[in-house]
Design a protein around this nucleic acid. Structure first.
Length: 284
DNA sequence: ATGGGTACCTGTCTGC
DNA sequence: TGCAGACAGGTACCCA
């Protein structure tokens, strides 16, 4: 499910309410992608800091209670690195119902219960003493540039792409050059840039890198503005669905007319994932 | 280093 | 109706 816009919308809808919240207890459901890596009870009493995002990961800083005396063998500060996988969403509620079969993590706090619902369980909640400590460091190490980082330019993108021979769509999904675009927004951004998703990275010149970067930023920013895409079950932390899917120009539109030129949108498979594009508007 | 494939897990939809 | 198969928003890991 969640690509950068959905993760950012989730972060934005949580950060303010969670800042300063004190952890009361943790409840775990079925195992997620990795074990949490700390004793759930050891989080009780800690206070939440400002939730941050890196790529599609969320980071919730937690620190020992002021004046508290945590037993020395327990972690005193660190945070939870969260990932929503393909089907995860976070909800913060004052009155959470009983945990359902897909509710695999509850962080009970004095500001409500933060609940991760994730049917496919590709998501993760992992304790790390800092972003530079394991396991967070290793998980974040491979991530590419943040799309809205001003340090990311057409030039730096061009430099990163010119040694790669994979198709540009595959490279965007990989996230090791630029993070944030998943299967929906990679297709959408390439449509907006007029670039065929099968184009080899090393065939994309500086001018097209410039267009692609602008298209990626425009697409992600618009999606954030619309609360993300809700294809099936994505909701922000207040239960609000996204609206970007109604503006998708190519994603899930196989066989329909291109909104720009009228020719038929195609679906192909790249790296075991569907790609949607207009064979006329998008050039190699 | 790059590339390709596999694996994780559950739900939904399609076609026979 | 039942059932097999394809497919779904992600990414770590293994091998060539």
């Amino acid at each position: 499910m969640p690509e950068l816009p959905e993760v950012e919308v989730t972060r934005a809808s949580l950060a303010r309410r969670l800042l300063g919240a004190q952890v009361v207890a943790v409840r775990l459901g079925k195992p997620l992608r990795w074990a949490m890596g700390c004793e759930p009870a050891s989080l009780a009493g800690m206070r939440a800091g400002d939730m941050a995002r890196r790529g599609k990961y969320l980071w919730l800083p937690l620190a020992g209670q002021d004046g508290g005396v945590p037993p020395p063998e327990l972690p005193r500060a660190g945070g939870l690195l969260l990932h929503l996988g393909m089907s995860g969403s976070l909800n913060l509620s004052d009155a959470p119902g009983p945990a359902g079969p897909h509710d695999h993590f509850d962080l009970l706090t004095d500001r409500g219960t933060l609940r991760l619902t994730d049917p496919r369980r590709f998501g993760a909640v992992v304790w790390s003493e800092s972003l530079d400590a394991e396991p967070a460091r290793k998980l974040l190490a491979r991530l590419g540039a943040e799309p809205f980082d001003p340090a990311l330019t057409a030039h730096s993108l061009h430099r990163a792409l010119r040694s790669r021979r994979v198709a540009i769509k595959t490279a965007l999904l990989g996230g090791d050059i630029v993070v944030g675009a998943g299967n929906i927004y990679a297709s959408e951004a390439l449509f907006l840039a007029g670039i065929d998703p099968r184009t080899r990275c090393d065939r994309i010149g500086l001018m097209r890198c410039d267009r692609m970067l602008a298209a990626l930023r425009l697409t992600l920013a618009r999606a954030i503005e619309l609360g993300g895409s809700t294809l099936r079950d994505f909701r922000d932390a207040h239960g609000v669905a996204g609206a970007f899917q109604a503006e998708a120009r190519v994603y899930a539109r196989e066989g329909l007319a291109c909104l720009q030129c009228g020719s038929t949108i195609r679906r192909i498979v790249q790296g075991q994932r569907s790609t949607f594009f207009c064979p006329v508007c998008q050039r190699r």
